[in-house]
Amino acid sequence: MISLIAALAVDRVIGMENAMPWNLPADLAWFKRNTLNKPVIMGRHTWESIGRPLPGRKNIILSSQPGTDDRVTWVKSVDEAIAACGDVPEIMVIGGGRVYEQFLPKAQKLYLTHIDAEVEGDTHFPDYEPDDWESVFSEFHDADAQNSHSYCFEILERR
């Protein structure tokens, strides 16, 4: 099963200049909980913004210009990325925008964090048809001392 995991502000903004323009430790914990011990696929820009392999996960970098870091697996196509994951129950696609666009048609599940923030962004989550998805989990949280904005975790499964 292919799943996408993303944090989205208003207007589906997911990033600005290779960074997330908010401070939500709870979302980072949600991300870790849902990706640990699963292969993660990301684009080169996302890889560069993280700066290191995510521990406890097979890191697969999709790029037309593969790098030389041998701590991760470099691939040039969506099919190659899927094959590099091996026989696993769930593959997690973690961004960025172009990689989400490439995998959305193949995805069966979306793990979304909806952030109540209007922020400037240069990267967006692809538009998706809500009628194609069923919400199977939703959990709202107010902003607090650690988390700069209110947010809602949601899991959607393709109908």
Results as ranks from 00 to 15, higher is better:
residue 24 L to D: 06
residue 148 S to T: 10
residue 157 E to C: 11
residue 41 I to Q: 01
residue 39 P to T: 15
residue 71 R to G: 13
residue 80 E to I: 07
residue 86 G to F: 05
residue 136 V to H: 10
residue 117 A to N: 05
residue 64 S to E: 14
residue 129 E to M: 13
residue 149 H to T: 08
residue 88 V to T: 12
residue 138 S to R: 14
residue 71 R to N: 12
residue 89 P to H: 09
residue 39 P to I: 06
residue 136 V to D: 07
residue 86 G to L: 07
residue 156 L to W: 06
residue 45 H to F: 04
residue 143 A to P: 05
residue 126 P to L: 04
residue 29 A to P: 00
residue 153 F to W: 04
residue 26 A to S: 02
residue 10 V to K: 00
residue 120 E to M: 14
residue 8 L to Q: 04
residue 20 M to E: 02
residue 100 Y to G: 01
residue 64 S to R: 14
residue 64 S to V: 14
residue 159 R to M: 10
residue 138 S to H: 05
residue 152 C to Q: 09
residue 84 A to V: 09
residue 143 A to W: 06
residue 64 S to W: 09
residue 106 K to L: 08
residue 153 F to T: 05
residue 36 L to Q: 15
residue 156 L to C: 05
residue 130 P to G: 12
residue 52 R to V: 12
residue 35 T to V: 01
residue 155 I to G: 00
residue 54 L to F: 07
residue 84 A to N: 09
residue 144 D to T: 05
residue 93 V to T: 04
residue 119 V to D: 05
residue 114 H to R: 14
residue 74 W to G: 02
residue 63 S to V: 08
residue 34 N to V: 08
residue 83 A to S: 10
residue 45 H to Y: 04
residue 5 I to A: 00
residue 158 R to L: 05
residue 125 F to H: 00
residue 65 Q to I: 14
residue 93 V to S: 01
residue 56 G to A: 10
residue 138 S to V: 09
residue 128 Y to W: 14
residue 49 S to P: 02
residue 122 D to Q: 01
residue 158 R to Y: 05
residue 22 W to T: 01
residue 123 T to V: 09
residue 71 R to K: 11
residue 138 S to L: 09
residue 83 A to K: 08
residue 94 I to T: 03
residue 111 Y to I: 10
residue 154 E to M: 15
residue 52 R to F: 11
residue 36 L to D: 05
residue 74 W to P: 02
residue 79 D to M: 06
residue 139 E to P: 00
residue 139 E to T: 07
residue 48 E to A: 14
residue 38 K to Y: 07
residue 120 E to C: 10
residue 132 D to C: 07
residue 89 P to S: 07
residue 13 V to A: 05
residue 16 M to S: 14
residue 94 I to A: 04
residue 38 K to G: 05
residue 21 P to W: 00
residue 29 A to Y: 02
residue 114 H to G: 04
residue 154 E to G: 06
residue 15 G to S: 00
residue 39 P to G: 04
residue 73 T to E: 12
residue 70 D to S: 14
residue 80 E to N: 05
residue 54 L to Q: 01
residue 26 A to F: 08
residue 98 R to K: 09
residue 150 S to Y: 06
residue 83 A to I: 12
residue 59 N to H: 09
residue 33 R to F: 13
residue 58 K to L: 12
residue 123 T to P: 00
residue 32 K to M: 04
residue 137 F to W: 07
residue 11 D to N: 04
residue 53 P to E: 13
residue 130 P to A: 13
residue 14 I to R: 02
residue 119 V to I: 11
residue 132 D to T: 13
residue 19 A to G: 15
residue 101 E to M: 07
residue 137 F to N: 08
residue 10 V to H: 03
residue 55 P to R: 12
